[in-house]
Design a protein around this nucleic acid. Structure first.
Lengths: 196, 196
DNA sequence: CGCGTGATTGAAACCCTTCAAGTTTAGTGG
DNA sequence: CCACTAAACTTGAAGGGTTTCAATCACGCG
């Protein structure tokens, strides 16, 4: 959990000793591609910090289609806050897209951390606000942009992910079909945006 | 600001005295329909509690189209948290759809309130999580639902608003054109959902 | 090597938008 | 309170973007 420690110390003033106390409430695991970390209907009791690899958060509609809410590559935290906070079954699923190394952050960790270190709450409040800012931006984009604009926005936001994530998952994130995405990419290539 | 006081005391254990101290950091105003409360580019220094009437939060795209992010009828709080928290110019606009009575909640109010009353932070954290839950639900809906499904979801969520809000604003909220919404409503009427 | 999944491509269908005209509603001033 | 004007809503026809379905190609994994 070295990377997670670095991450925390970069954003808060957590000391080595404080971290080693808190680490009792952490667990790391290596998971293969396509491993389920949170299932629909479960209560989300942990947050997941990605040290290596790539996770995703998504829902499945009544029609059986996947709607990807969020990707989480290295140094991202992913969780269903609503489920944790309101202690309700999650409507979302978290699983791994690549073989990954994940830190499981328990509720106890969060609690102890905010007792031990004042800057901790502050940082997690910042994360919350960042999260809201991000999905609000995405909302206003989904309301107005067509397939090409959405894809351009995606590669701007996640330059490296556009190569790592299978296209059908990018399509699901953008709210279009894989076929449409394929055509959009072809279009863009013709316009000499061959870099993407 | 009687309604706001009721609202707060319903959700926290704020005493009358505490509220009267805090009320120094509040301002109420009556605004006519179509009054601007927060303009694009401004830093959002206040939250707005709606005692009467109806506000909206929206952005304007490069193409000049309005994308409504949120409606705020009676007893709702609306603000651009990102702008407040990160002290950055807002990309959103807040204005009134109806003649409204609004409480302006200053940053000082928030600060003092959390000093005076412990339950306060807790409640506002709950609001934050509720907000995230709400826009995440909307995200997964925008990703997969067609015009009719979106409208049905809207009237389920805001039964009273579907009558108060002009259709072109509902259309903007749903990410469709007013013409499409008009047709969807006609379709639904034919299917005997005449109640809406 | 072969199988299966993902990516591509084509053609047809569909949903939604756009544009334009007509109708209704709401707001304003006499 | 009515008349007038502007804005909102409705409706139609045409067009565009996206989806759907189906077939083919490419690639990675067992």
């Amino acid at each position: 959990m070295e990377k997670f420690k670095e991450y925390l110390q970069h954003h808060t003033n957590l000391s080595n000793e404080q971290f080693s106390i808190l680490s009792n409430y952490l667990k790391t695991s290596k998971v293969k591609k396509q491993t389920l970390l949170l299932n629909q209907g479960e209560i989300c009791s942990h947050s997941f910090f990605v040290e290596e690899g790539l996770l995703r958060l998504y829902s499945i509609s009544d029609a059986g289609k996947e709607h990807i809410i969020q990707f989480a590559p290295e140094n991202w935290i992913v969780t269903d806050r609503s489920s944790t906070f309101f202690n309700q079954p999650s409507e979302f699923i978290i699983d791994s897209i690549e073989d990954s190394k994940v830190v499981h952050i328990s509720g106890e960790f969060m609690q102890k951390a905010s007792e031990i270190n004042a800057g901790f709450n502050q940082y997690f409040e910042k994360l919350l606000h960042n999260h809201i800012r991000h999905i609000q931006h995405r909302l206003s984009f989904l309301l107005g942009a067509n397939a090409e604009q959405r894809y351009m926005d995606f590669i701007k936001l996640y330059p490296d992910l556009s190569l790592r994530v299978p296209q059908l998952m990018i399509a699901s994130y953008l709210g279009i079909t894989p076929e449409s995405l394929s055509r959009v990419r072809k279009e863009l290539a013709n316009k000499n945006f061959k870099n993407f």
